[in-house]
Design a protein around this nucleic acid. Structure first.
Lengths: 341, 341
DNA sequence: CTGTTAGCGCTTTCAG
DNA sequence: CTGAAAGCGCTAACAG
């Protein structure tokens, strides 16, 4: 296997009888070089299709133009969407992305971070795992002068900008929609209250209920531990078989809503006339099932985009950024499942 | 923003009164170094948590330990699965992955490849776009001595190993299953015959029909141009309203099968007792809809894994590999939609 | 406007 | 078993 030998700056300089530094300056558009020289160098470079050795440049400048991205899972509609946003935005700014998955466990995350740091990424974008309580592995980046931006699943253990979805408002709008469609007894299948998203969605649900003069009942709120379809099924059964069953259910996630829907249909309830249903996250699924599931769309691509813009800005300014929380607006997608009539 | 200064090989050497080369050799496990020295160096390195400067090492060795991955779309269940397989496998071998998407258009693909080549990846894994007829941008890699492995969507324009799914057998098994479940008049919603996958699935379908002594009818085969849900709906309507309607439909894709299912349900057919349905690709969806859709699973993770193993092997051996086709087995996932009884 | 010099951190001959 | 020295390709003082 034989490779074309690549031409170097030195070769250009030699051929043109100038010094390598002059050639370098000519190519990189310094103003203190005669137009004539610049023309010559550029011509020669073009003709011999000179490509600067990225390795050498990076080594010299001590930067890689690489940014690390760590998510719990790659095979996941929301995260793959954010990954796409990060990659496309990075591309626009001349950066490239190394994607890793933590598997949503601490060890995986630590390993990914250590690796990324070893490679020498210029900065990190991360959505932390459920198990991330302590964050030394993140602090390491800051200690080496590399900024971090967190998104979606965040921890307060380090100081960094954080991009999240406005769960509170998203939930509020979702429940408001159910109310406006005539539902009055709205239950909520929520998640673990330690998780910020679950907390925010619950608060939005509660506020919407109260603002509209409806009754808030503890027993209409069920906490899904693992956010599974089965949990949706089981809790819905529980709710509907209780003495005071709800007439609508707001689910923390589309998957839970699916489980809920399956129970309701299996038990003979008509959707959405008898029971209304609302999901969250607008998983692809929601537009394919029958009846279509109303849901709250979290702009994943824009989230990746935003996080990346902040990070690259910090890298360029050689700063860490404030410990701020940027909340992105959600979008209510009204489909059949929440429209009583 | 202040950074901890990182310790270098020279520092270690200086502290231990040895030369940098000895330190280097000690750390990299050369045998011509006394155990004593090795111990000392390793100890010191550990204590001061020395991390080799990856940039310098790569520069020196003229390799990046980076591999490029180009897929049509990142936000796509099958592709994100393969991406995951590539990343995990690369990790195991000490490589890292730069993921790009072509958007399934030629321009995007060319841009991604040029960028990746510029960064200096050690090799490329690619699933080409629908528009890729000519492949100079891929040849460029080979010309620079960087191996390529293709997967799923492949082109014959360059010589390289190719990892694909065994569409023929997958389709054959799928149709055989329908037959074994008592269906006799099996239609096929296929794709464009220029696309290899569509071709293979069609052939498998036809062979299974013929092998079991069933009748092959041209009018039971419909070509979906864009592989859309709507096409599944429309063609199924056409089929069922024809004078000789089928009693089962094998769809080129789960999405098409979903459209098919929607039409059948809306027209009052009972599934699977009146009409059997079989998809392909085992999209997540298939296990959530009612009735669950039988489908052919393409091991995406294993596909990424296989492609990566081949590539890394080639990189290490400094070879390009033969122009061979590796066909991965599919797996029939039997759910409700294909079980008549 | 341009050349000289030095060096980024590491590995690898070549000599002992 | 170890050290000295050179150099990967590029850029950035510094000096004219």
């Amino acid at each position: 296997m034989s490779e074309k030998r690549k031409i170097t700056l030195k070769d250009i300089a030699h051929a043109l009888n100038i010094s390598p530094s002059t050639a370098s300056r000519a190519l990189n558009g310094y103003h203190s070089i005669s137009d004539e020289t610049i023309r010559q160098v550029k011509d020669y470079a073009e003709k011999h299709n000179y490509v600067p050795n990225a390795l050498a440049v990076n080594f010299r400048k001590n930067r890689t133009s690489l940014i690390g991205l760590v998510v719990p899972h790659i095979v996941h509609h929301f995260f793959s969407t954010t990954i796409s946003g990060v990659i496309e935005t990075a591309k626009k700014h001349g950066y490239h992305v190394l994607v890793s998955q933590s598997g949503d466990v601490k060890n995986g995350e630590v390993f990914a971070c250590k690796t990324l740091l070893g490679i020498g990424v210029d900065g990190l974008i991360i959505s932390v795992s459920n198990e991330t309580i302590e964050a030394d592995h993140l602090q390491d980046f800051l200690d080496e002068g590399k900024p971090i931006v967190q998104f979606d699943k965040i921890t307060d253990q380090i100081i960094s900008p954080k991009v999240v979805v406005d769960d509170f408002n998203g939930a509020y709008q979702a429940v408001k929609n159910l109310i406006e469609n005539g539902y009055r007894k709205i239950a909520h299948l929520s998640g673990r209250m330690e998780v910020k998203n679950a907390q925010g969605r619950f608060q939005g649900y509660k506020k919407a209920i109260e603002d509209h003069g409806l009754e808030f009942r503890e027993e209409w709120v069920k906490g899904c531990w693992d956010i599974l379809e089965q949990e949706g099924f089981d809790f819905t059964k529980e709710l509907m078989e209780s003495p005071n069953p709800p007439d609508a259910i707001f689910c923390i996630t589309d998957l839970v809503a699916l489980g809920s829907m399956k129970y309701l249909q299996s038990a003979g309830y008509d959707l959405p006339s008898q029971v209304g249903l609302m999901g969250f996250s607008n998983w692809m699924l929601s537009e394919y099932i029958t009846p279509n599931l109303s849901s709250v769309h979290q702009h994943g691509f824009e989230m990746g985009e935003k996080a990346t813009e902040i990070l690259i800005d910090l890298i360029k300014k050689h700063e860490f950024g404030a410990d701020e929380l940027i909340e992105l607006k959600t979008e209510l997608i009204v489909r059949q499942s929440s429209q009583k009539r």
